[in-house]
Simulated scan of single mutants.
Amino acid sequence: MSAVMSIGTMTVVGMLAFGAVAAGGAAVTAQRMSAAADAAALAGADTAAGFASGEPCDAAAHVAAAHGATVADCGVVGTTVSVRVYAVFAGFDVSAAARAGVPATSSGGAQSGWSKPSDGEITSGFGPREAQCDDSGCASTVHQGVDFSAGCGAPIYAIRSGVVVSAAQSGGYGNQVRIDHGDGLVSGYAHIVDDGMLVAVGDTVITGQLIALEGDTGQSFGCHVHVSLERGGAFIDPMTVLG
């Protein structure tokens, strides 16, 4: 009898433990779906505004997939894109919905022909800075770009029209996209999330086009995008043109 009771107790404890793990996993999945819905809706809105070619709901589906989600419903009504995404966890559908307004095609304070690369705040400016270190090493104390942070999976936009010259893993920069704008100007977008590069070498992009999703790859201390700008091979402060 005691053996049976012991097995029964272990079974109940095991079931409770599984339930706790499942509940925790479902909560994490729900958070991921919420982020996926937000990013997908923004991507659809940017495409509807003409910042990227294609159909808004196709763009939303692409971004949702990069977050491990599937678009269940998507629609554009007036100036609003609505998206619902889902993923399956432990046999159940976990879903989230979001809406985003179609943005006006303005440069947001940047010089004519230029656009901000992120909706996030600047977290580190161009030039000298204090050393940032972790177990894998230290970042340079001479910052050859500007960091923006809007959150993991947030959209990254081309700051100017041009041609994609690289889209690959690049050492400490992690996953990076580089765009040649002509006149000796090349912009870079680093630390992109895995599977978050939405353009390929040879693609022509337009100002403000969605090109990637924010991540934490390479020598990074949290999700952000490191934006660099080169003129004739020398790094310059991107804010001289971004305002």
Rank of each mutant, 00 (worst) to 15 (best):
G171P: 02
S124P: 01
G162H: 02
E230A: 12
Y189I: 02
A36H: 09
A96R: 08
L42V: 12
V193F: 04
A104C: 00
A90L: 11
D203S: 06
A98L: 04
A98T: 12
A72T: 14
D194M: 04
A100N: 04
V201M: 03
F126T: 08
D194Q: 09
S124A: 14
A150Q: 07
C133T: 08
A100L: 05
D119A: 15
H226N: 04
V186F: 06
T105E: 11
Q219L: 14
G162T: 05
A131V: 14
A190P: 01
A36T: 07
M5S: 12
G196L: 08
V94Q: 05
A190Y: 00
F221H: 10
R129T: 05
G182C: 02
R129H: 10
G243Q: 09
S2A: 15
R32L: 12
V199S: 09
A37P: 13
M5G: 08
G120A: 06
V205R: 10
A234C: 03
T29G: 05
A23D: 09
G50H: 02
V227L: 05
T207C: 06
A49W: 04
Q111S: 11
V186D: 04
H67L: 09
H67T: 07
V241S: 01
D183W: 02
V88R: 04
T105M: 11
S140Y: 02
A168D: 13
A90F: 00
S187D: 01
A97F: 03
S118N: 05
S115H: 14
G218Y: 02
A36W: 00
Q176S: 10
T11V: 14
V71Q: 08
G145W: 03
D46V: 05
T80S: 12
V77N: 14
A64F: 09
D135I: 06
G151I: 06
Y189W: 03
G243P: 11
D46K: 04
F221M: 11
L229E: 07
S220W: 01
I156V: 15
D73M: 09
R178L: 10
G153D: 00
H191E: 12
A39C: 04
R178F: 00
M1E: 10
G125N: 11
G218N: 05
W114Q: 06
G113T: 05
F235Y: 15
T217N: 08
V227N: 03
C133I: 07
A154S: 14
D216H: 09
V13F: 12
A154Y: 00
V177K: 10
A45N: 10
G243I: 07
T47V: 15
H67E: 03
F126L: 13
E130G: 15
C57W: 12
V77G: 12
T70F: 05
N175V: 03
G108V: 01
T217H: 07
T123K: 01
E55A: 15
